[in-house]
Each structure stands twice: as structure tokens, then as C-alpha cells.
Design a protein around this nucleic acid. Structure first.
Length: 217
DNA sequence: CTTCAGATGCTCT
DNA sequence: GAGCATCTGAAGA
């Protein structure tokens, strides 16, 4: 029932991978503790033909070099000088496709998640720690690529990490999204015709709780 | 409920 | 020097 995802899972095009990652559990082990969270929102960046992608037109720089790795590596970069964005590389070696992780729900390592989040100010949105069965509250705390990365302790130091290793990997715990919504991607108004492509995928939710079969928790 | 400015640093021109 | 695959708290409607 619960198995680690291997290389072949990631060596597919970004759109396919973005949908397939919904419901998978991202696990990160550090000396501060182990955290686990089920992915609920992704965005596909389809590479050289995608104006929204850092690798549009085959652009190759020190930063984008990671995107050219084969599927199953972490592409992490800093945005707006403050927040880390966590991506998963897709496709074959030399094909710079990637999937941005935009939201997740923690299912393990709540202490570490809370500790990681508390290093930001965040006084109003969640001044006190929610109970562990309040999925909607925890989902909100990991809603957004910056918050997700912060909560799971993902930083630029994780860039180019192999996601098929033992410290940082995805697991299939058998959570199947009841329904997947697709919409245009966020924050890419500059991307011309690509800004309307429906490459943002979300697990349908009710009352702030993403719906899976079987349900989370 | 909604807009709005500010924080902050790295990458690329 | 400009512009970001963002988030927060404060202020206004």
C-alpha cells in the first residue's frame, strides 16, 4: 500500500507528473525531525516552449541547470528575496520540464512543521497551534509554495537533491484525489499565450479539506 | 470582505 | 538595475 516512488515515476512529461503527484506524500528527514505532507496543488512548467518557464527557449544558466536533470530531482530557487519554491524535475535528462508544488496537507511530523512555521512571524493567521485533526487549519498553513517550503524546511540547500534517496522522497500512501481541477497558473502575467494554459492542478476540497479516497486521517 | 505596500536577495541583462 | 512561479499585516469599504 505504501511505497516509495522510483525514477520511472518522474520520467514523464510535466503535465502528467503534475497530476500524478496529487495525493502523493512528500517525506523529508532532517536532524530536526521527519515531516510528511500529502500534495494537493501543483503546476506544470513544460520547458523550452513554455514562456512561463525559467528554461523557455532552452535558456541554460547556473540557476536553470537543475531543470535539465532527468525526472526526480528537486529544483529549488528563491523568489522575491524571501521564499523558496520547490519543484520536481520531470521528463528525461536534457529536457527541462518541472512541477511546482503549491500546497500540501501535513500528516506527520507536526511538531517539526509547527516549529518551522514559527520562524516566520504569522501572528494573525494562526497564533496558536491547531489540533492535529483539524485538517483545514493545517492545510491553510501549507497553502502556497512559500509556506509549503517553509513548513517542510525546504531551502536552496536542497536544490538538485535526488528525490529517490532516503532523506527526501515521495511515497504513495494510497490517497486518490476524488476530483482534480485544472486552471491557469498563478503569477505569470508576463508569459504571453502561455499564461492561460490550464497547467495548475488542484485536488477538489470541501470546507478547506481536500477530498481523497480514502479520506486523509 | 477587499486592496495595497513593503520586505528582501538572487538572477539575468 | 530591473524584475521576479510570494506572503503578510494594515487600512479601507
Amino acid at each position: 500500500m505504501t511505497e516509495k516512488l522510483g525514477r520511472d515515476f518522474f520520467r514523464r512529461d510535466a503535465v502528467t507528473l503534475a497530476r500524478a503527484l496529487l495525493g502523493k506524500t512528500l517525506v523529508k528527514r532532517t536532524e530536526r525531525g521527519t515531516v510528511a505532507a500529502v500534495v494537493t496543488e501543483t503546476e506544470a512548467y513544460t520547458g523550452v516552449g513554455d514562456r512561463a518557464s525559467h528554461a523557455f527557449g532552452g535558456r541554460r544558466t547556473a540557476r536553470t541547470e537543475t531543470m535539465y536533470l532527468e525526472g526526480g530531482y528537486a529544483y529549488v530557487y528563491l523568489i522575491y528575496g524571501l521564499y523558496s519554491c520547490m519543484n520536481v524535475t520531470a521528463a528525461e535528462n536534457g529536457n527541462p520540464e518541472a512541477v511546482l508544488l503549491r500546497a500540501a496537507v501535513p500528516i506527520g511530523g507536526f511538531d517539526t512543521v509547527w516549529e518551522n512555521l514559527c520562524r516566520t512571524s504569522r501572528k494573525k493567521s494562526a497564533p496558536v497551534r491547531p489540533p492535529e485533526d483539524d485538517l483545514a487549519a493545517w492545510a491553510k498553513l501549507l497553502d502556497g509554495p512559500g509556506r509549503l517550503s517553509c513548513a517542510l524546511g525546504i531551502t536552496k540547500a536542497d536544490n538538485a537533491s535526488d528525490l529517490t534517496g532516503d532523506m527526501f522522497f515521495f511515497r504513495d500512501d494510497g490517497y486518490v484525489p476524488r476530483r482534480i481541477l485544472s486552471r491557469p497558473r498563478i503569477g505569470i502575467d508576463y508569459a504571453g499565450e502561455a499564461k492561460d494554459w490550464p497547467f495548475r492542478f488542484t485536488v477538489a476540497s470541501e470546507g478547506g479539506v481536500p477530498l481523497f479516497d480514502p479520506p486523509l486521517l
